[in-house]
Amino acid sequence: MVQRPGRFRFLRALRDLRVHGLLSPQDVPLAATVGVLLALFAACAIAFPGFLSPGVARNLLVGNAALGLVCIGMTFVIISGGIDLSVGAAIGFSSILIASLVQQGWHPMPAFGLALTVGAAGGATMGTLIHRFALPPFLVTLAGMFLYRGGALMVSERSITIRHPLHRTLAEWGSGPVPPAVVMFVVAAGAGFVVARWTRFGRDVYALGGGEESARLMGVRVAGVKVRVYAISGLCAALAGVAMTLATGAGNATAGHLAELDAIAAVVIGGTPLSGGAGSMVGTVAGVLIFGLIQEAMPRAGVTNSWWFRIAVGGLLLGFVLLQRGLEGRRGQ
């Protein structure tokens, strides 16, 4: 056989690893993510006495449930080859919307429902614009971000405390054994995992991310998939907004500040390349947990300065970007 240059030689080397029961190339980013997570966890467990307690695990989940929810939607968007910058502002909008509706005498349940509907509809609208007019996703969702943030601040610039028995009960559960936000995150992650892996829609998202033209030729209804992907992202962001109101007992228009950035970073660290077509929900959850672990570990290591957190995330991001670039091989030349 003629030896094909470059990329195949590399992939063949990796295939040999797999033949020996070790790895397949598409699993390398995920393996790296899980490896980093386990190493971090082990290091923390050894370095900090009492780290292996339910309390810490709880903190980890509670503290990152909202981010995790956003990341689930973002994972779909990124796998499809797009990006959604509007999620942070969407959190703020749904948070303040719910609080203000309850303040006006709404029952929290329909308020949640309306917030989720707005989130999904907003996402669907952006998806439609992106597809119908072939616009760059990051500009359209940027407009969405301005719109959500401006709208949220117009509803109220001040934080609104939510006073309703049901909401109070739910919020109190937050410090109980089954915090609602964590339940939402776990359920959403499970649903995301199943959808991505075991539904035709989920596989279509991957196909779309692998190449729009090929996907169309293979019979994927590109328009529908794109619209749904952004709708899911909007829905997840609105869910995160609900989680935020439960955690703080109030609605805040500035909630979710920079969450889009954290979410993109966590998803990429979770092994999903921004070029689309690959990635997994498991990786994303691992990415979110890495985020949480670093946050938990830093104060224990005596690093109380939050900026080291950003730098660490940036460094991890760089590492994963370079790893993914290396796996792609040198295109073109």
Binding site: R197, T199, D204, G210
Partner: peptide, 27 residues
């Protein structure tokens, strides 16, 4: 080749027509 290089060979053969059980793809 106008297929999805990122999906498995099996999925490329059956994308959009995957056999399902209880609404989920029977991998």
């Amino acid at each position: 080749v106008n297929l999805a290089p990122n999906l498995s060979l099996a999925e490329n053969l059956l994308l959009g027509r995957q056999p399902r059980r209880l609404g989920l793809i029977d991998r």
